[in-house]
Computed example of a mutant assay.
Amino acid sequence: MTAPLKHTDLINVDVALGDRAYDIVIGRDVLATLGRRVAALRPGVRTAIVTDRTVAGHWLKKTEASLTEAGIATSHVIVEEGEGSKSYAVLEKVSEALIAARIERNDLVVALGGGVVGDLAGFAAAILRRGVDFVQVPTSLLAQVDSSVGGKTGINSPQGKNLIGAFHQPVLVVADTAVLDTLSPRQFRAGYAEVAKYGLLGDEAFFAWLETNHADIFSGNAAREHAIATSCRAKAAIVARDERENGERALLNLGHTFGHALEAATGFSDRLFHGEGVAVGMVLAAELSAQLGMIADGDAIRIKHHLADVGLPTALQDIAGFTQEGLADADALMALMAQDKKVKRGRLTFILLEAIGRAVIAPDVEPSLVRDFLKVKLERRR
């Protein structure tokens, strides 16, 4: 597999949801076209931008300028960076700001930021006046390949991640790959975990391509656009077939049952970024699959090696403060996993692997088996 792209190429990925279909526009410097795209989509619309403080410093003026040049009135609300903003208190702040800005049902909310801002702004739009449309302008790699696509919005509960939310599809996604140049290496790596996920769950050839070309993705070559577009096409296809996660969309949660529990155990802090938790979670899912005889040990090792090669954590002991806050306690992690959204009547559901490129939904996994598995992993490298 190669990446026959140039930075000048714009890529459109269609999310085929009937009368709620929308485009994902991917390309370098495409943010400048946001205003004319919104104007063409909704003539006479007003907008309100929701963003965080860090993203605002880089991209708010450019976003406002694009909208203003297209004759679109806009306002903005700025929240703090990080998972802490996915809370009841910040949701209230954003909702009240949107009401004060007189955003009506025929107007648009613009989510300018990473996954936190996209989830928060999208949920605020979903509940504002019983539903206002919104546009995703993702500014992190993780958001561009995953969280901005598919309509999952929400906030966190102290009891778990994304437990309060709604399905609310955007009407447009504008993914400017140039904005990724402002990310820290750690932030970019965290997003890369979600790129690798698409290869692992359904495209072995893509995973093999990533093993060969990941350096070009990190350096900003045209391979970056190819990786983002391939990931978006994979997610768009699954979302079109199963919008509300009644079946195969659950496959997109590969690594997330473990990962979300680890995020909760670390207090949704910068000790563990979401993508880092997913990376550890995918390795654990692969190793559990191998223990169950579903995949070869060599496949699990291959997955771990690739994620480690790009600098992602791959073991529980790689997490900062490993011995604190329940991270070294299998029972505490099991209790956090019991709040996973895929739990049905108290029984755990995991996404496991039959091969690299073939993930499966494994319902009703025996908790004692998972607990014993975690205890062994917790003892390793101590």
Rank of each mutant, 00 (worst) to 15 (best):
7 H>D: 14
12 N>H: 13
13 V>F: 06
14 D>G: 01
15 V>C: 02
16 A>L: 12
18 G>K: 09
20 R>C: 03
22 Y>H: 01
24 I>F: 05
25 V>L: 14
28 R>Q: 15
33 T>K: 12
36 R>N: 13
40 A>I: 05
46 R>I: 01
55 V>H: 04
55 V>S: 04
56 A>T: 06
62 K>P: 06
63 T>C: 13
74 T>L: 04
74 T>D: 01
76 H>V: 03
81 E>M: 06
83 E>N: 07
84 G>R: 14
85 S>E: 09
86 K>P: 04
86 K>S: 03
89 A>L: 13
90 V>G: 05
90 V>F: 07
92 E>S: 11
94 V>R: 05
94 V>P: 06
94 V>N: 07
94 V>L: 08
95 S>L: 15
95 S>W: 03
100 A>V: 12
101 A>N: 14
102 R>H: 14
110 V>R: 00
113 G>T: 12
121 A>C: 02
121 A>F: 01
122 G>Y: 10
122 G>C: 06
122 G>H: 07
124 A>W: 09
124 A>V: 00
125 A>Y: 00
125 A>H: 00
131 G>Y: 11
136 Q>G: 03
136 Q>H: 12
140 S>F: 08
143 A>S: 11
146 D>F: 07
148 S>C: 09
157 S>M: 14
163 L>S: 02
167 F>R: 00
171 V>E: 02
177 T>P: 05
178 A>L: 10
179 V>S: 09
179 V>P: 05
180 L>N: 05
181 D>F: 00
183 L>K: 07
189 R>E: 04
191 G>Q: 01
194 E>N: 00
196 A>V: 15
204 E>W: 01
205 A>T: 14
207 F>Q: 07
208 A>W: 01
208 A>S: 10
212 T>M: 10
214 H>E: 05
219 S>L: 03
224 R>D: 10
228 I>Q: 06
229 A>H: 00
238 I>H: 00
239 V>P: 12
240 A>P: 03
249 R>I: 13
250 A>F: 03
251 L>A: 03
251 L>P: 02
253 N>Y: 01
256 H>P: 07
261 A>D: 07
261 A>G: 13
265 A>C: 11
269 S>N: 11
272 L>C: 09
277 G>R: 09
278 V>C: 11
280 V>D: 05
283 V>Q: 08
284 L>P: 06
286 A>T: 02
294 M>I: 00
297 D>A: 12
305 H>L: 10
312 L>I: 06
312 L>G: 08
313 P>A: 09
314 T>W: 04
318 D>N: 14
327 L>T: 02
332 A>Q: 14
332 A>C: 04
334 M>A: 05
335 A>Q: 15
342 K>E: 04
344 K>V: 15
345 R>I: 00
345 R>G: 09
349 T>Y: 05
350 F>P: 05
356 I>P: 13
358 R>H: 15
362 A>P: 00
362 A>C: 12
363 P>M: 02
366 E>H: 09
366 E>K: 04
367 P>I: 09
368 S>N: 12
369 L>E: 13
369 L>W: 12
370 V>F: 15
373 F>C: 03
374 L>F: 10
374 L>Q: 08
375 K>E: 15
375 K>Y: 00
378 L>T: 04
379 E>V: 03
379 E>Q: 14
382 R>I: 11
